[in-house]
Amino acid sequence: MYGVFPYNNVMATTVSRTSQKTARIDIRLTSEQRELIERAAALTGSTLTQWTAQQLMEAAQRDIETRARLALESEAFDAFQAALEEPLPDEAQQLLARSPQWA
């Protein structure tokens, strides 16, 4: 049985398009650091590149979630919310009423 099956053709096309990796990161490590990372990768059954990319992605996501989120204590949040409910000062209302210079 020879032939092209739609499932195989679609899968091959999808995989080749999504797995194109063109960016590269080079880092300098001590031999001890590299050995430790290689050991961790081997324990998970991953290649060094796969393991490193996964760890970097998880760390990046964690840092973005932690540092891009504004967290306020209850009292500070209440003060912030109250400030939002107050009317704008007259100066701010006048500024908003002006036409921008670029218009």
Results as ranks from 00 to 15, higher is better:
residue 6 P to D: 06
residue 44 T to K: 10
residue 64 I to Y: 11
residue 95 L to C: 02
residue 6 P to Q: 07
residue 53 A to P: 00
residue 20 Q to N: 03
residue 82 A to E: 11
residue 19 S to H: 07
residue 63 D to A: 10
residue 16 S to I: 07
residue 8 N to S: 08
residue 17 R to W: 00
residue 49 T to D: 14
residue 103 A to P: 02
residue 36 L to F: 03
residue 35 E to P: 02
residue 16 S to E: 14
residue 93 Q to Y: 03
residue 95 L to E: 08
residue 70 L to S: 12
residue 63 D to C: 04
residue 57 M to D: 15
residue 59 A to N: 06
residue 47 T to H: 05
residue 9 N to A: 15
residue 5 F to Y: 10
residue 11 M to F: 03
residue 29 L to F: 01
residue 53 A to M: 05
residue 41 A to W: 05
residue 62 R to D: 06
residue 50 Q to T: 09
residue 23 A to K: 15
residue 70 L to M: 13
residue 91 E to D: 11
residue 89 P to D: 05
residue 65 E to M: 02
residue 7 Y to K: 15
residue 28 R to Y: 11
residue 21 K to C: 03
residue 94 Q to E: 12
residue 29 L to K: 03
residue 60 A to L: 12
residue 84 L to S: 03
residue 29 L to Y: 01
residue 18 T to N: 09
residue 100 P to L: 06
residue 44 T to S: 07
residue 7 Y to M: 15
residue 25 I to M: 09
residue 87 P to G: 12
residue 57 M to C: 13
residue 10 V to A: 13
residue 14 T to A: 13
residue 32 E to A: 11
residue 13 T to W: 10
residue 31 S to I: 01
residue 50 Q to E: 14
residue 101 Q to K: 13
residue 62 R to W: 03
residue 72 L to Y: 02
residue 12 A to Y: 02
residue 17 R to I: 00
residue 44 T to E: 11
residue 21 K to G: 07
residue 39 R to E: 08
residue 86 E to M: 14
residue 100 P to R: 10
residue 69 R to F: 04
residue 89 P to I: 04
residue 45 G to T: 00
residue 33 Q to G: 08
residue 24 R to K: 14
residue 33 Q to S: 07
residue 21 K to H: 08
residue 8 N to E: 10
residue 79 A to M: 13
residue 40 A to S: 08
residue 57 M to S: 12
residue 88 L to P: 00
residue 54 Q to N: 14
residue 5 F to I: 12
residue 98 R to M: 08
residue 102 W to C: 02
residue 50 Q to S: 12
residue 101 Q to C: 01
residue 96 L to A: 13
residue 102 W to S: 10
residue 40 A to M: 14
residue 37 I to N: 02
residue 67 R to W: 02
residue 85 E to L: 15
residue 91 E to W: 03
residue 17 R to F: 00
residue 102 W to N: 09
residue 72 L to W: 02
residue 27 I to K: 09
residue 33 Q to K: 03
residue 64 I to M: 12
residue 45 G to S: 07
residue 80 F to Y: 15
residue 43 L to R: 09
residue 2 Y to I: 13
residue 23 A to T: 13
